[in-house]
């Protein structure tokens, strides 16, 4: 491919000039890339990308999926991942690559002289290449963002399901946030594991932090209660707000004989009396 040989030659010959022009172009593009990532980092990454591109061209392969372009892909991934982690938009990240077009075309024009046909061919080859690189950054960016979201999701799931021991034989599970099937599964598993560990006779599921209870959430709660019962532990659902009590009745949800209490305190008191223990001053005695 003669065009690519010339493109490669242009890259090799004008590397320093291209780099300076490119950086100027990036600064002029009005994106936050330089400001957010830091000038030295952007300069270093731009330089490494140019070097990597020159080396990739030297191998003679033109598709960026080829092994020879691995280094190029790595530099681009780095830029995209850093951009995604520090809150840049996808277009800002892609502009990092696209701003190479103008300096590259200018260098090509200089190299081809008056040969309009050659210039057109070269420009086409260059633009195809830069587009490929730009698309690649967007792809990596998307992937990096998805990874971040997934990580946060799993962190949230772990954070939000503590099972606390309130008393000998009494566990409490304060639920915060909406219950979906995946969370219910995790909540159920951690509850049942703790039941085995502690040998608790009563478990209190407190739903003060659950914003809404619809038929699905109620079904999930009943599942958890049933599973605990199968293991020999009785469950009490507490923290039912007046609004939720109304919703439950209006929806016609049958809580299947599950004991419910308005507050965690009430449930705790019941749990203690069920276990044959008595609480010294359960009723408010002051005042």
């Amino acid at each position: 491919m003669p065009e690519n040989i010339r493109l490669a030659a242009v890259l090799a010959r004008n590397e320093q000039e291209l780099l300076n022009d490119w950086l100027r172009e990036q600064a002029a593009s009005g994106t936050r890339t330089v400001r957010v990532l830091g000038e030295t980092i952007v300069r270093d990454q731009s330089r490494r990308l140019l070097v990597a591109m020159r080396e990739a061209f030297a191998s003679g392969h033109t598709s960026i999926d080829d092994a020879a372009w691995r280094e190029v892909r790595e530099v681009l991934s780095e830029v995209s991942r850093e951009g995604a982690a520090s809150g840049l938009t996808p277009s800002e990240t892609a502009t990092f690559v696209f701003s190479l077009k103008r300096p590259l075309f200018a260098a090509l024009r200089k190299a081809t002289g008056n040969d309009a046909n050659a210039l057109a061919d070269e420009t086409w080859a260059a633009t195809t290449l830069v587009d490929q690189l730009g698309l690649y950054t967007t792809e990596v960016f998307q992937k990096a963002r998805e990874e971040i979201i997934q990580r946060q999701q799993s962190e949230m799931l772990e954070l939000s399901t503590p099972v606390v021991k309130l008393w000998q034989g009494v566990l409490a599970l304060p639920l915060i946030g909406t219950l979906d099937s995946r969370r219910t599964q995790i909540v159920m598993e951690s509850l049942l594991e703790r039941i085995v560990e502690t040998g608790a006779e009563v478990a209190i599921i407190d739903i003060t932090g659950v914003p809404t209870v619809d038929t699905l959430v109620a079904q999930h709660l009943i599942k958890a209660v049933t599973a605990a019962r199968l293991m020999g532990t009785e469950c009490i659902i507490s923290g039912i707000r007046p609004q939720i009590a109304q919703t439950i009745v209006h929806l016609g949800v049958d809580l299947q004989g599950v004991t419910t209490k308005a507050t965690l305190a009430d449930a705790f008191q019941l749990a203690l009396t069920r276990g044959g223990r008595s609480l010294p001053a359960a009723t408010p005695s002051h005042g």
Binding site: E189, I195, V196, T226, A227, R229, L230, M231, G232, T233
Partner: peptide
């Protein structure tokens, strides 16, 4: 029925078998 393992309890619930007439205990 005593000593049901957590995994077994979850499976039975998912299968829709809540064993309503059976008493259960931990050990």
């Amino acid at each position: 029925v005593v000593g049901m393992q957590p995994a077994v309890a979850i499976t039975l619930v998912e299968l829709g078998l809540s064993l309503p007439g059976i008493r259960t205990a931990l050990n």
